[in-house]
Structures are given as C-alpha cells and as structure tokens.
C-alpha cells in the first residue's frame, strides 16, 4: 500500500489552502504532520481521504487516482477534527450503524475495538452523555474498527487523559507493526516524535521541511 501525492494544490475561494504538495507514504510507517493551527494539516488529511478534490495535481493510492478513478481510498479509516456521532445512540450502536455500510466486520469486532480503547461496548450511555475523552476514543474506534490499510488521525490524543494517551500510543504502534499506513497530526511535539517514523512540517499549506525521527 502506498500513497503518492504529486504537485497537489488546492484553492478555495481563490485562497491557497495547499500548495504544491509532494509526498510519498508507504505502509508499515507512522507519518507525523506538524504545524500551527490553520497551516493546512487537516486539509491535507481531507485531501488524502478524498473529501476535498485538487485544483491541480493528484493523489495516487495504490495505482488509483483519487477523484477520477476512485471517489475515496478503498480501505481507509479517518478521524478528522472533532468526531461527530449520533447523540441519541450509544457508542456501540453508532459504530454498528457505520459498520453496516461496508459490512466487513462483525459486532464482536466492533466490541473488541472498543475494548482495546477501554470503552465499554455494553454501556448503554448515549453519545451525548460521553465525556470529551470518550468521544475522542469512539472517533478513533470508528477509524480503526474495520482494520483499514490507511489510518488518518487528526489530533488523536486531544482531550485524552494520560492513561488513554498511553493506550492510543500502544495501539498505533501495534497497527503500524501490522503493516498499516498511519498519518497523524498532533500539537504535542514530543508525542508526535515518539510515534512517528517521519515528520512533515507544514506552514501556509506548504511542506517546509521533513525529517526522520530516528535521525534526530
């Protein structure tokens, strides 16, 4: 599995959101995106998901051009910005409703994913009653439950307590070892460098710098 981004530029209302992005990502790695608020990290993630389409350039995912040959990557899970779920449903019911669309995992798989994030699948509590941290973990669960090849997580450890941060970190490393291609953004530089194999620094929609973490 690979993602190749070639000369990707995105203009929205004549404003340059992403400019001439060139990236090459491969499975079995965690890639970090570093940058200030509004630098274009989230937009780049949306672009890789196929949620926004390029003004020029292209994204090639395993040979398929996003937006022309495929609408969305065939196997992707994403948490972008705050997770939106149905307030009136429990966490498990929310995930089950989503999982039914692809129907590639069982109810037990959903429960196992929730348990791996220390969320109780049998908890009848409605999503609107969830704490911020629980909502965030449910968002991560939605992104990884179908065991996608590409996992995109925008600020995954936001609102999490120390114990949950540790759980998410272990989970991400285990997913990387399973051969997943993971792209994350994080405000915490130390956590980002701990998790990532390679970090891209984004500023004003451009990649200004990149480095391998073990090379520091």
């Amino acid at each position: 599995m690979y993602i190749k981004i070639k000369n990707y530029t995105k203009l929205i209302e004549h404003k340059q959101i992403l400019h001439d992005i060139n990236l090459s990502l491969e499975s079995g790695h965690i890639y970090g995106l570093k940058g200030k608020n509004g630098s274009g990290k989230t937009m780049l993630m949306r672009a890789i998901c196929g949620l926004i389409l390029p003004t020029s350039g292209e994204i090639n995912i395993n040979g398929d051009i996003l937006g022309t040959q495929i609408s969305f990557p065939k196997s992707i899970g994403a948490l972008i910005e705050s997770p939106g779920f149905i307030d009136a449903y429990s966490g498990f019911k929310n995930l089950k409703l989503l999982a039914e669309i692809k129907n590639i995992i069982s109810a037990q798989d959903i429960a196992d994913t929730m348990l791996s994030l220390r969320l109780d699948p049998y908890d009848k509590k409605k999503f609107k009653k969830y704490s911020l941290g629980m909502k965030q973990k449910l968002g991560i669960a939605a992104a990884i439950m179908e065991k996608p090849d590409i996992i995109i997580l925008d600020e995954p450890i936001n609102a999490l307590d120390e114990e949950s941060v540790q759980i998410v970190k272990e989970l991400l490393i285990s997913l990387k070892n399973d051969g997943k291609l993971i792209l994350i953004s994080c405000h915490d530089k130390d956590e980002l460098e701990f998790l990532s194999d390679q970090i891209y620094e984004i500023e004003s929609g451009e990649i200004k710098n990149f480095y391998k973490v073990d090379a520091i």
Partner: peptide, 13 residues
C-alpha cells in the same frame, strides 16, 4: 458532520 464517515464508507459520492 457524521455523514463524512458514512461518505468514506459508501465509496461512491
């Protein structure tokens, strides 16, 4: 909002 997750899974816009 939630529909983004649905959209990604639907595979076709």
């Amino acid at each position: 909002s939630y529909g983004q997750q649905v959209l990604l899974r639907s595979q076709k816009r």
